[in-house]
């Protein structure tokens, strides 16, 4: 999951999404330690304070937890990770459906198109 940061939205929100996605796809596994603020900041090429803010936000949501010694780990609550994954999927689908309706497609047409896309057909 790369850091494709766009220029017109707050950076911390975009970083937060990338880390969330990395957790969902298992790049950072449940109960595992995630890289330090400095390491992540250098990797993303962003300000360490901004990275700190994103991680604090993720802590608040419970997806990552601060460890007593140092650093942060991904929650061991797999249910929570699955729920966030579903939530993201619902958002994506909703956005897709809204756009298709804007284009004037009805439910059946959308379903047909989806099936075709899944089969890799034109």
């Amino acid at each position: 999951m790369a850091w494709n940061l766009s220029s017109d939205r707050p950076i911390y929100a975009q970083i937060l999404e990338v880390i969330q996605l990395r957790i969902i796809v298992g790049q950072y596994k449940p109960g595992e330690k995630i890289p330090s603020v400095r390491e992540l900041a250098a990797e993303a090429g962003v300000n360490p304070n901004t990275m700190q803010k994103a991680l604090t936000e993720l802590e608040r949501s419970g997806l990552v937890m601060a460890q007593r010694t140092s650093g942060r780990m991904v929650t061991e609550n797999k249910e929570m990770i699955r729920e966030i994954r579903n939530q993201l999927a619902r958002e994506q689908v909703q956005e897709f459906v809204n756009k298709m309706k804007e284009l004037g497609f009805d439910r059946d047409e959308i379903v047909t198109l989806l099936k075709q896309a899944e089969g890799g057909e034109k």
Binding site: S7, D8, R9, P10
Partner: peptide, 14 residues
Amino acid sequence: VEEIREKKGKSVDA
């Protein structure tokens, strides 16, 4: 920087 992006909806450069 974050405030500029949030309030103005654009990059600092813009």
